[in-house]
Design a protein around this nucleic acid. Sequence first.
DNA 1: ACCTGAACACCGTTCAAGT
DNA 2: ACCTGAACACCGTTCAAGT
Lengths: 186, 186
Amino acid sequence: MRADAQKNYEKLLEVAQQVIAEVGAEASLRDIARRAKVGLGTLYRHFPTREALLEALLRTHFEALAAKADTLQRASASDQALVAWLQEIIEFTYRQRGILAPMMSAIEDESSALHDACVRLRSSGAALLARAQKDQKARRDLDGDALFDLIAALAWLREQPSHQVRAERIFQLITGAILMEAATAS
Amino acid sequence: MRADAQKNYEKLLEVAQQVIAEVGAEASLRDIARRAKVGLGTLYRHFPTREALLEALLRTHFEALAAKADTLQRASASDQALVAWLQEIIEFTYRQRGILAPMMSAIEDESSALHDACVRLRSSGAALLARAQKDQKARRDLDGDALFDLIAALAWLREQPSHQVRAERIFQLITGAILMEAATAS
DNA sequence: ACCTGAACACCGTTCAAGT
DNA sequence: ACCTGAACACCGTTCAAGT
């Protein structure tokens, strides 16, 4: 990549990070280009779709979550590992308002730039769930897909202002429904 | 209301019904006015906000849901009444794609045209929940607000194409978490 | 190679001008 | 009273023209 292109790329990511933190993932791409002092076409050259921009922006976060799942898988009791990871991923998506809708479409759309990241998250979750199930700590009638749905629902709720005060309670209700009774006694 | 105004009003509702069924609640207002063969200002005169249009469009549905809750309250076992009503409301919102986001903001925003309808739904749910709790059939650590959150989460999930195949399973998981174990034995 | 911004086809919202 | 549509301030996306 040419030096000027590299600079534009980085400036765009930096500004996009800010703008999306301010107004959410539906932020105006025009506005991002403007604030990065870059032509609109330059933004489209580096990031052909909004999903490509989001993916570049969140790549390190996605990787960190996958790594975290591996660590928990080895370091913690299976039920606690699952719950802790759910908490992590929901906190992450909460910090990236508006990321949930694109993630839910991406998981089905193999051409989406976010597809791979979502699939990786889903399989991290599936692995944690599988271990908890083997330990008799989680219901066996769930799979990684169902877990992903539940995460998405919790994460979407978390985005809703009216839900804030009940976030913790609802999280426990759902995780309680995933885990088996015996797990709470440990 | 003048005869021509009345006619425009009805034509707008009719067209809006169609367009929203096709593309969801975020449909272009411009497009609705165009297809109703009415000036854009006329749409704004009759429906000053998108929420006002949605409210007019869904008023009868909202009332039917409240009435259904009353019927179930009297006619069915408390746990079955609650589950049946949850199913109804989720089916309803599913038919009105995109209605969930405005409903979730409306419940907190007293100035929203959808506010009253949402509050009414929430209290219908709260009444059903209260009876089930009195019968020892539902967890006592939930209230109408929490139930509304859970309904919203389920209804939002239902809008997601990737979730379709698991809709029934996740619905049962959540309702199972609301109801107490004894209830499933009845 | 890469950048730029005008151009196009859309929005939501307001409001002067018409009947 | 009510209706109309132009006007304004925005979008996303593409692409000819520039360096």
